[in-house]
């Protein structure tokens, strides 16, 4: 997009309303950073963070997690696998070292929370109660060690129980982030809505594998990893569409969004806001580029707000 286009966008921007409200919290625009793909310091070296609607942090757990050994990244056709394994310094370090810096920026702050048991999730969300965090995103794709490693998000009852408990311990609005590795996403969505989730984010990565046939081993040390990027977009759009028609709570849609038009696709499918993940690893400025492309699209077709896009599907 040339500079001229951008200027045009900004001048027209004045009569556009990009705001969206999720669980009573207003985002200036629907562009958020997907968990695990953003660093305020490093991403901030490429663009103005205040352009974002919200920052969704990488997953934080009650105690520090080491993550998996490397290689943790593998490229696939039109996508990538990661097995970072949710490496993070733990909630105390996050609150002390990272949160104050995040709070120097304007966008809403959504903290992504991970755990290995319901107790771990609850202890972590409790610690965030008296912080200046706006919202929580509960990553329920994690394996539950008490139940033999089955993902909380893959089981309707477990997902419901986790939502109920987290809801009890948290004073903040909670978004449940669903895994696509299930046979019926709408069942899980309904279960978390019934237990008091304030919103839903979807999708997390799809479980995948890549084999290096020359060396006869998997590329990732962890053998399997989460598939993300444009390769998963059709799955994500379909799931947002299905979930929109199953629940009433707001949806943050993500999975392979590379352009403003991709973002529009999610909005039309029924998302209230979107997150940019893998695209930002490939083009560090992707979130702001996608935002200006979204504005360009709205101007071209005369949309004045996001509601109109969401309701435009025939």
């Amino acid at each position: 997009m040339s500079k001229q286009d951008l200027n045009l966008d900004v001048s027209k921007h004045r009569n556009l309303d990009l705001r969206v409200s999720i669980a009573g919290i207003t985002l200036e625009n629907p562009i958020t950073t997907a968990s695990g793909t953003f660093s305020a310091k490093e991403s901030g070296a490429f663009y103005d963070i205040d352009e974002l609607g919200a920052i969704i942090t990488k997953g934080v757990s009650i105690a520090p997690w080491e993550g998996n050994p490397t290689p943790r990244i593998a490229e696939t056709y039109g996508g990538m696998l990661n097995s970072v394994g949710l490496q993070n310094p733990g909630i105390d370090s996050f609150i002390k070292e990272e949160l104050p810096y995040l709070r120097t920026f304007g966008p809403r702050i959504v903290v992504n929370v991970v755990g290995k048991s319901i107790g771990e999730y609850c202890s972590a969300v409790e610690k965030l109660n008296d912080t200046e965090v706006d919202m929580l995103e509960i990553n329920i794709s994690c394996p539950n060690i008490k139940e033999g490693g089955i993902s909380f998000g893959a089981d309707e009852k477990l997902a419901a129980e986790l939502t109920r408990e987290v809801r009890k311990y948290s004073k903040k609005p909670i978004l449940m982030k669903l895994t696509p590795n299930v046979s019926d996403i709408t069942e899980i969505a309904r279960a978390v809505e019934a237990e008091g989730a304030d919103g839903i984010s979807l999708i997390n990565t799809l479980l995948g594998m890549k084999i290096d046939i020359h060396n006869k081993r998997t590329v990732l040390w962890n053998k399997t990893g989460g598939l993300s990027g444009p390769a998963i977009k059709p799955v994500a759009v379909r799931m947002v569409y299905q979930v929109r028609r199953s629940v009433c709570i707001p949806i943050i849609g993500l999975g392979g969004i590379m352009t403003g038009e991709d973002a529009v696709e999610f909005l039309m499918a029924g998302a209230d806001a979107v997150s940019i993940g893998t695209a930002a690893l490939i083009d560090p400025t992707a979130p702001v580029r996608i935002k200006s492309e979204l504005i360009g699209f709205m101007n071209r077709y005369g949309y004045q707000n996001l509601q109109q896009i969401r309701e435009s599907m025939l």
Partner: peptide, 16 residues
């Protein structure tokens, strides 16, 4: 040298 995702510090793919 390590396998990288972003190469600029956002993804924690390249840990040592």
């Amino acid at each position: 040298e390590e396998r990288m995702g972003c190469g600029y510090g956002a993804c924690v793919g390249c840990t040592c």
